[in-house]
Design a binder for these strands. Structure first.
Lengths: 224, 224
DNA sequence: CAGTTATTCTGTGTATACACAAAGGATACG
DNA sequence: CGTATCCTTTGTGTATACACAGAATAACTG
């Protein structure tokens, strides 16, 4: 039996709405009305309200003055901010992970990495990549950092959904090479290199995302 | 006339409670009851509830299973996480600020820095230091990063309040030297150096905070 | 017919009543 | 006197009713 600790309608509404937004069933720009959602989810306005307030604080929805909630549209500047932040945090996490990961964690990373390199199915491949990052984050031993990064990563997923991008072969090879390099740095306990590589890795994924988001506006920049 | 845009009792309650926690009027470990706070602030439970939920998400209060809210006690591990996170973010902000700050912003930083070095009053001196950091964060051009850092910084203030520390002469001199060095790096548009210096600066402030928090448990570590 | 003003309609903001679960203490029983 | 059970108390979780503000629309006027 899974963890059945808090329950609560508000929690349920939160998860339900968040997944709907991530899944793309609620498109950006779409208005969200408490009353409507309440009847739709079979509960009163109160728990819906709480869920929306929480979602708003995480950036999943936006509250217009007194006119209601909407799923926000992401501007190019928003995308940039997301990835900058993620690059900073992921780099920091990798640095700490290089110094703090247990041998068992490193072995697990190695295993994950091998499966990652072999996996053909796009969906599963993405999932494995996500697990790899999560494990590094866990090894960094900073719960607040972990919470932020996880929230940020799911939000970035939203941005990607909105452009229906493809995982072409080139991107795949690059990602695999990046992951391998980061793992090697962690195994060598080289925190400085792990930090640098993780930052560059995120930056590269930013470039591909941006490219598919709006090809004509894309300009290549030097990685630092 | 000041900005009178959102208003709302919930917003008011949020600010009121947050300031009470920061100010130390609500001590860590103290239980917070919706009903009590409601009558105390002259409003109903509803806006109080919202404020508490939001405060909980920011880490200002903690929600026990179904037994109510409390102001959380900070463990040494919490303090470490705070400062690690702040070091990572502040370093990243400084790096971007070095590349993006306008000449006007740099001039303003220069001015602030001079006042900072001269100011004798402890209270005002701290305030100026905070403004210095805020300006750098603003120059980094990342609103999400800014929001996180500001929230984090006020929470760190809480940890400090709880130990009533003194700004001794040594700490003051070190801080002034650090700020000057960071400013120089930004003026030189040297993002790598700015990043490194900002990280080290936060780390040093961690050491002093930890020292005053529990002198006997303090162990000096090498800065990286 | 255009521009201005009422009015209604739709949404959130707030207050309040009730449901329910858990902790603490009193009481009955061994 | 110790222990288990029941009851009361105290708190949050949820539902609902009302207040209020803004936008859209209808009506009115020149």
């Amino acid at each position: 039996m899974p963890t059945q600790q808090p329950a609560g309608l508000a929690t349920h509404a939160f998860a339900q709405l968040r997944d709907a937004i991530i899944g793309g069933e609620l498109a950006p720009g779409e208005p969200l009305y408490e009353i409507h959602l309440a009847s739709q989810l079979g509960m009163s306005r109160t728990p819906i309200r709480e869920a929306l307030k929480l979602l708003a604080q995480d950036g999943y929805v936006e509250l217009l003055p007194t006119r209601g909630y909407t799923v926000p549209k992401r501007s190019h500047d928003d995308i940039r901010e997301f990835f900058e932040l993620r690059a900073i945090l992921e780099a920091g996490a990798s640095r700490h992970a290089a110094l703090r990961a247990t041998d068992a964690e490193i072995a697990q990373l190695e295993k994950l990495s091998e499966r990652y390199e072999r996996e053909k199915n796009d969906e599963k491949w993405n999932q494995l990549g996500h697990e790899f990052h999560s494990l590094i984050i866990a090894a960094a031993r900073n719960s607040r950092l972990a919470t932020m990064l996880n929230s940020l990563n799911t939000q970035i997923v939203i941005s990607r959904r909105s452009v229906a991008r493809a995982a072409d072969a080139g991107r795949r090879a690059t990602a695999i090479r990046d992951h391998r390099a980061i793992l090697d740095a962690i195994k060598a306990r080289d925190d400085v290199r792990a930090e640098k590589l993780a930052g560059e890795h995120v930056w590269r994924s930013y470039e591909t995302t941006l490219k598919s988001y709006s090809p004509d506006l894309f300009v290549s920049k030097k990685i630092r």
